[in-house]
Every structure is written in structure tokens, then in C-alpha cells.
């Protein structure tokens, strides 16, 4: 939050245009999940206050829903460079240096997404083999890993795009 939210991906074009559109809509999808959770929560507190029941499993679905939404937000955040940095020591650094640091950051994001895809796939299989479910409505937790893994694949794609851009910038800055 402590970063001005003026990062947008609008106005950029190129071969990866459809990829950007997909990632933006994926993030919006996460936003819809969040809105749906908000509405469900409002219904649930209204029911609790009036008739004394609640939407079954409301709080465990909120937990899982928020986790899914956050994963869906990751690719867009990477694509738009909205992860917070400390710029003070490098404020006077040249274009070349900046390009190298963006390249390094994108590379870390790329490795991180690959690592998480690998590990969380295994985590999903574990959860499935152990039949782990949520406490109240018995929702199988491993199924929530499917949108999470899809998000990580998009994070990988987003990191490739930002890596490519940084590489391009690095090449340009040499001349």
C-alpha cells in the first residue's frame, strides 16, 4: 500500500499484448473473488444478527478465498512492477544499473515461480492423498491449489515478460 498506485500496464503494446490482457483479467478475477467474499460475509453477519444462523463455513471459505485471490493478484503485480522497493541508495544510478537490478528482480521472481509451481504441485498431491478438508463444510483443500497453480504459471509468464523487458533495456543502455 505504501506505494503510489499509479502503476498501470495500459499504453504498452507489443507481441505480449494478449498476455497482458489475460493477466489483467486474471487479477480482476481475483478482485471478483474478493467482492464475492465480501458479499457472502455481509449475508452471513446479517443472518447471524437476525435469525441466528450463518452461511455454513463462511470463515473457512474466507480464508481459502482470500488465499486464492492473493495468488491471482501475483502475476499482475509482477507485470506492473508494483512490488515495493527502497530507491534511495540507487536514486542517482544510471540507466544501465537500473536495468541490471530490474533484471535481477525479474530473475528472482522467475525462479520463485518455478520453485513454487514444483513444490506446491507436490503439496497439492499430499493434501489430496491425505483427504484434507475444511472443518465445517468439508471442502477438499487441494482443489483450491488448482487456481493457485494456474496463477503461479501466469506469474512465471509475467516474470518472463519483465525479464525480457529488462534485458532489452540492458542492451539498449549499452549503446
Amino acid at each position: 500500500m505504501e506505494k503510489p498506485s499509479n502503476f498501470t500496464d495500459d499504453g504498452r503494446t507489443g507481441p505480449e499484448g494478449p498476455v497482458r490482457t489475460l493477466i489483467r483479467w486474471w487479477a480482476l478475477g481475483g478482485g471478483f473473488v474478493l467482492c464475492a467474499l465480501a458479499i457472502m460475509t455481509v449475508i452471513s453477519v446479517t443472518l447471524t444478527a437476525t435469525v441466528g444462523t450463518q452461511v455454513p463455513g463462511d470463515f473457512e471459505m474466507t480464508e481459502i478465498g482470500v488465499a486464492v485471490a492473493v495468488f491471482m493478484f501475483l502475476p499482475y503485480t509482477q507485470l506492473t512492477g508494483a512490488n515495493v522497493t527502497v530507491d534511495i541508495f540507487t536514486a542517482r544510478a544510471g540507466r544501465r544499473f537500473s536495468a541490471i537490478m530490474v533484471l535481477a528482480s525479474s530473475a528472482i521472481a522467475l525462479l520463485f515461480s518455478i520453485l513454487l509451481i514444483w513444490r506446491m504441485s507436490e503439496g497439492m498431491l499430499d493434501l489430496r492423498s491425505y483427504n484434507e478438508v475444511t472443518g465445517i463444510i468439508g471442502f477438499p483443500i487441494w482443489t483450491a491449489f488448482i487456481p493457485m497453480l494456474m496463477s503461479l504459471v501466469l506469474l512465471l509468464v509475467a516474470s518472463l515478460v519483465t525479464t525480457g523487458e529488462a534485458w532489452h533495456e540492458f542492451r539498449e543502455s549499452r549503446t
Binding site: M1, G31, F73, T77, A82
Partner: peptide, 17 residues
């Protein structure tokens, strides 16, 4: 749409930290 995308960036940033 802007509100949702800004929420997306802020939330992802916080959770990733």
C-alpha cells in the same frame, strides 16, 4: 476496475512481503 486492480497490487504486495 481501477479500484479492483489497485486492491490487487496493494494486497499482493503486502502478502508477498
Amino acid at each position: 476496475k481501477s479500484a479492483l486492480l489497485e486492491t490487487c497490487q496493494t494486497t499482493a504486495m503486502i502478502f508477498l512481503i
